[in-house]
Computed example of a mutant assay.
Amino acid sequence: MEFNLLQKLKYASQLTTQEKHIVDYILKDPEVVFHSTAHELGRQTFTSASTIVRLCKKLGTRGYPDFQLKLALDYRQQPSALQSESDLAAERGDVVAAIESVPYLYGQALNDTRSTLNPSALVRIAEWVKSAARIDIYGSDMNYYLAQQACTKWNELGISAIAHNDADRHYLLTLKPGSPTLSFVISHTGENRSMVEVVRMLNDKNMNVVAVTGSNDSTLSRSCTETLLTHGYNEQLRLSKMSSMVSVLYLFDILYMSSITDTL
């Protein structure tokens, strides 16, 4: 799942100077949106109605009326959270502001991931972990370090697990068809070319492969035996990577806890 509109306003990146000005204006007084048309808000921010509508669509809404409705719903649930990052920094300092915002981001990432969990799929994957002779986890860049953390935990239980940061063609080609190796492949977008190539080669070996990705419609998900959905990844949001990391670690820790139970 993606960030709600409140978070998109607070953490949106890749905005033009005019769009940033509009966002700051709204965050200082969110209720102005409820009492203004797009033309009126454009005049108040010294921009235009077309710029307002363009920003609304960039934030994932269908237009200004849809933006008004979704912002009203978010504001009703947590009005105090609409305070901008700049206000928080000015009042309490960046570090102190982070004390409040980081748990909020972690909490939503965990809740959103939990809401998409498929218990039957998790039970099935946990059984695969239990019967696997070895676990391979593939991930590039940041995902490689997440893979290493997951492998370290399993290795401490005596379960052989290895992290890979690319498509090791020599290793993949030497795997025997039907090998009792369970593979996880991490890609938040599900379109990482290297990871898609890994899955293609693993599929040739007739093995169980689990996608760890943010989209059921991605190439990665469609190519794997099972999918574990992570918190929605959005490149437009500065802190999206942080939330996605928490989501991935949560999924692997669920399977790790299952492994602990099996080894007791």
Rank of each mutant, 00 (worst) to 15 (best):
117 L>G: 04
101 S>H: 05
156 E>R: 11
153 K>A: 04
165 N>Q: 09
58 K>W: 06
65 P>V: 03
38 A>R: 02
60 G>Q: 01
75 Y>D: 09
71 L>H: 01
165 N>I: 00
165 N>G: 05
113 T>V: 04
53 V>G: 02
50 S>R: 15
98 A>V: 05
122 L>V: 12
177 P>Y: 13
67 F>I: 01
129 V>K: 03
142 M>H: 14
69 L>Q: 06
175 L>F: 15
121 A>E: 12
37 T>E: 01
64 Y>K: 00
100 E>W: 04
148 Q>G: 00
141 D>H: 12
60 G>W: 03
73 L>P: 07
67 F>P: 02
101 S>V: 15
47 T>Q: 08
139 G>I: 10
87 D>V: 08
106 Y>V: 13
116 T>I: 04
96 V>F: 07
145 Y>C: 04
42 G>L: 02
135 I>Y: 01
147 A>K: 06
102 V>A: 10
175 L>C: 13
133 A>Q: 13
156 E>I: 01
67 F>W: 00
48 S>F: 05
44 Q>W: 07
42 G>V: 07
142 M>F: 12
77 Q>T: 13
126 A>N: 14
95 V>Q: 09
57 K>M: 08
119 P>M: 11
53 V>T: 11
124 R>C: 03
93 G>Y: 00
132 A>S: 15
127 E>N: 15
111 N>T: 13
134 R>C: 09
126 A>D: 12
129 V>T: 08
106 Y>L: 09
160 S>M: 09
157 L>A: 10
108 Q>L: 03
35 H>C: 07
69 L>R: 05
157 L>N: 11
50 S>Q: 15
36 S>Q: 11
97 A>H: 04
175 L>N: 11
132 A>G: 04
40 E>M: 10
155 N>E: 05
60 G>V: 03
176 K>N: 13
147 A>I: 05
106 Y>D: 02
113 T>E: 03
66 D>C: 00
167 A>I: 01
89 A>W: 07
86 S>T: 15
154 W>E: 00
66 D>V: 01
100 E>C: 01
179 S>I: 12
114 R>P: 02
70 K>C: 01
99 I>F: 06
144 Y>G: 10
44 Q>R: 09
125 I>V: 12
102 V>G: 00
78 Q>D: 14
62 R>S: 13
90 A>D: 12
133 A>F: 12
40 E>Q: 13
125 I>C: 04
174 T>D: 06
122 L>F: 15
138 Y>E: 05
101 S>N: 13
132 A>P: 06
85 E>S: 08
61 T>E: 02
42 G>H: 05
154 W>M: 02
60 G>C: 03
52 I>E: 03
83 Q>T: 15
178 G>C: 12
147 A>L: 03
134 R>N: 06
119 P>V: 08
138 Y>T: 11
162 I>P: 04
130 K>D: 12
94 D>M: 06
48 S>R: 12
137 I>G: 00
72 A>H: 09
133 A>N: 13
130 K>V: 09
